[in-house]
């Protein structure tokens, strides 16, 4: 039976091993004190990388964070944030 040197099948869920965050030019920076926990950033994020931390800020609002492993820096979250709590900053490595 023929065996391949290079495997052509992928295991379920293995796409997450491909960390696409390296594609980004700008990264979102969240001002967690300004965050009102509205979930808008999560709703508009094409990659689903904005998430609720479950923690409260000084104003008593649950604040959000983002997973930079997969953030491609599209800036939708910053554009849509109703309180301008997200700024896009050049991601210099």
């Amino acid at each position: 039976m023929k065996k391949f040197k290079h495997i052509l099948t992928a295991k379920p869920g293995s796409a997450k091993e491909n960390k696409t965050g390296s594609w980004r030019t700008f990264k979102p920076v969240i001002d967690q004190e300004a965050c009102i926990g509205c979930d808008m950033c999560n709703k508009v994020c094409p990659d689903g990388i904005c998430y609720s931390t479950g923690l409260k800020n000084k104003k008593g609002r649950i604040y959000y964070d983002r997973n930079l492993d997969y953030c491609k820096g599209c800036g939708l979250c910053a554009k849509e944030c109703p309180v301008n709590a997200i700024k896009m900053v050049e991601d210099i490595k």
Binding site: L8, T9, A10, K11, P12, A15
Partner: peptide, 13 residues
């Protein structure tokens, strides 16, 4: 090497 519901995997990725 093939698609099987009991052993899920992707082909043509």
């Amino acid at each position: 090497t093939y698609l099987d519901v009991n052993n899920p995997q992707s082909l043509g990725t």
